[in-house]
Design a protein around this nucleic acid. Structure first.
Length: 585
RNA sequence: GUGCCCGUAGCUCAAUUGGAUAGAGCACCAGCCUUCUAAGCUGGGGGUUACAGGUUCGAUCCCUGUCGGGCACGCCA
């Protein structure tokens, strides 16, 4: 058999059904032919529910239609038999020889088996994490990172041309607050003490950055501390401030006092934080093609440009000294401010410019991965796209629910500002990259995730990742003991793979490309995780019931060919999820 | 109060998006190492899919209502 032209069985069957439909149907009723895998062996390998769908338009009972379709269907060398079952299902039984023949295909494609061209090379962008560079990444960001990276990998494997992007919020007030926080800590190192604002960044990493400046420049950035509390209430000398207004006044004072030097502080904290993120994410197996600066949107005039376009389309108006976008025209609950009374653009304004820019860069589909707390933001961004005459359906928002941390059976507090959180780095150090990555994508992204730290730390066999990795390691171990040339396995006589376990494994291997395609289509990398666990389960069962290194050479090589194929699929699948496939455990 | 998401075994989660008898893992019970790694395997009990209606050949999935949980309702990001 020519292995390079092996048909995708689902596509093959749907083509057969299409030809049957063309024979049976005279009118051109709109139909969609869905071929699904069956759950039970007695129902064959694949099923089609078309006859039930056609019952109403044809005014006939489904079983009768099913019989007609089967009779009209061209013969296929791949099929053992086709049956009508249940209420009108058409069940397809695939010949064992076809399943066995797939093994050659898998062995030949190896590290690329499972990849397909469902995406047809369409340019797609995945923007994820995009956390404010104002403090270390925590376990909440970890979920977005794991989900986004896995989704991007899956999309890539499904034939899309994927760009992974991180949007850096380097332009806003939060960065000013971090710069101020760092400078105040630095002043303290120089014995200039001001009560540290309650709503500034409290974390230790702020003190670390302050120390960095102090060690390199001593008191170089201590200027006129007496003016620091200008315009603030008298109490600010004794008690820490805690209102937004007071904090903004402090920032303004800092900018005035530091002058040109403010940019140095601002830039240093940004560089430090981004460097830390990049390193942290890299060790988590997450890398980006583009780090896109929000500030660059202002510097390159893209925000002004976007605002001008909206203005031309009469989508902006002035009220109470601010500039508003008519998002209610596009289904939002209320209109939104794009430029504040003080002249500053809002985050929303730069976000409009950013999304306009994404489509200007030629992406056919743009995926944003957001925390679930941002869901109220969707309608205004899509509204803005619509106002700019872009198709809002080309922007897909994948909301990732929060990961709630449990320690000693109790909820762990999570607050970035107060510095009370478990960092992603700590999580990795405690449970390992692989367990963390797998754990994160074991759940559907729109489900809340209970992250039990004690369980994850325990390194016990409750961690599902070990189960899959162990299957991989066992195969490597067997192949090492065999110590033969893997090339000979391509010529193995796969007709000898006839026991139930082996045929089930073959079918699962055949399913792998379909799983990747479904995961890409549904933005559901968890399907890959579940698939891998099921494959590992079937393999472990096989391993326990059947000996591979048997004296009969032909039988041994057939079995080794099978487990080699499993080895490839486990490895390829784990790679999509950012999990290592160790050869020994 | 209004909007969005969610509610499935004791616990944590699936269910090919409307398909056949709702499945796994933990936990619990009983077995399997003289044999390629026991981080494994085999068997067992566990369910009114929160509740009540509706739509149709068929509903965990779609619609309405009730209850319960999360999130969002800024000239913050």
């Amino acid at each position: 058999m020519n292995t390079s032209e092996l048909p995708n069985l689902k596509i093959h069957l749907s083509q057969l059904m299409q030809q049957a439909v063309d024979q049976v149907m005279t009118s051109d009723t709109a139909i969609s032919i869905e071929i699904t895998r069956t759950k039970q062996a007695s129902h064959g390998d694949y099923a089609c529910n078309l006859a039930m769908q056609l019952a109403k338009p044809l005014h006939k009972n489904p079983r009768e239609i099913a019989t007609m379709l089967i009779e009209a269907m061209p013969a296929s060398p791949s099929l053992e038999k086709v049956e009508v079952a249940g209420a009108g299902f058409i069940n397809f039984f695939i010949k064992n020889t076809v399943k066995q023949a797939y093994l050659y295909h898998i062995l030949q494609t190896g590290s690329t088996y499972g990849f397909n061209d469902a995406g047809k090379g369409k340019k797609i962008q995945v923007e994820f994490v995009s956390a404010n560079p104002t403090g270390p990444l925590h376990v909440g960001h970890g979920r977005g990172a794991a989900f986004g990276a896995s989704l991007a990998n899956v999309l890539s494997a499904a034939g899309y041309s994927v760009t992974r992007e991180y949007y850096v919020n380097d332009a806003g007030r939060q960065m000013d607050i971090l710069a101020l926080s760092t400078w105040l800590r630095y002043l303290a190192l120089n014995d200039v003490h001001v009560p540290f604002p309650e709503n500034a960044y409290q974390g230790e990493y702020v003190k670390d950055m302050a120390r960095l400046i102090y060690q390199a420049h001593a008191d170089r950035y201590v200027h006129e501390p007496a003016r620091l509390l200008d315009g603030l209430p008298e109490t600010a000398h004794e008690t820490a401030v805690n209102t937004d207004e007071d904090l903004d006044q402090l920032i303004a004072n800092a900018k005035k006092i530091l002058g040109q030097d403010y940019a140095y502080i601002h830039n240093l904290v940004l560089t430090e934080q981004l460097g830390d993120f990049r390193n942290d994410l890299m060790e988590f197996g997450v890398e980006f093609d583009t780090w896109f600066s929000e500030q660059s949107l202002f510097d390159n005039g893209l925000v002004a440009h976007a605002m001008q376009l909206l203005e031309e389309k009469k989508q902006l108006y002035r009220q109470d000294g601010a500039v508003w976008f008519r998002s209610t025209d596009f289904g939002d609950e209320k209109d939104r401010v794009v430029q504040r009374e003080n002249g500053q653009f809002t985050y929303f304004a730069s976000d409009i410019a950013y999304h306009l820019n994404k489509f200007d860069r030629g992406f056919e589909t743009v995926i944003n991965i957001w925390g679930a707390d941002h869901h109220g933001y969707i309608s205004r961004v899509k509204g803005a796209l619509q106002a700019l005459q872009l198709d809002p359906d080309k922007l897909k928002i994948a909301l990732v629910q929060f990961a709630v941390l449990y320690r000693d059976g109790k909820k762990a507090p999570m607050s970035t500002r107060s510095g009370e959180f478990v960092t992603l780095r700590e999580l990795r150090q405690e449970v390992g990259k692989d367990a963390a990555r797998f754990f994160y994508v074991m759940r559907k992204s729109d489900q809340h995730l209970d992250f039990d730290l004690d369980l994850a730390k325990s390194q016990s066999n409750e961690n599902p990742v070990y189960y899959v990795q162990y299957a991989h390691a066992r195969i490597c171990s067997v192949l090492a003991q065999w110590d033969g040339d893997p090339a000979v396995l391509v010529d193995a006589n796969t007709d000898l793979l006839t026991i139930e376990n082996e045929l089930a494994l073959l079918q699962q291997l055949i399913d792998f490309p379909d799983t990747i395609e479904a995961a890409a289509k549904e933005f559901s990398p968890h399907l890959v995780a579940f698939y891998l666990r099921e494959l590992a389960s079937e393999f472990h069962s096989y391993y326990n019931s059947t000996h591979f290194l048997v004296p009969e050479i032909a039988l041994m090589e057939a079995r080794l060919a099978l487990i080699t194929a499993i080895h490839h699929v486990l490895k390829n699948g784990l790679k999509l999820l950012g999990v290592d496939a160790p050869e020994k455990m």
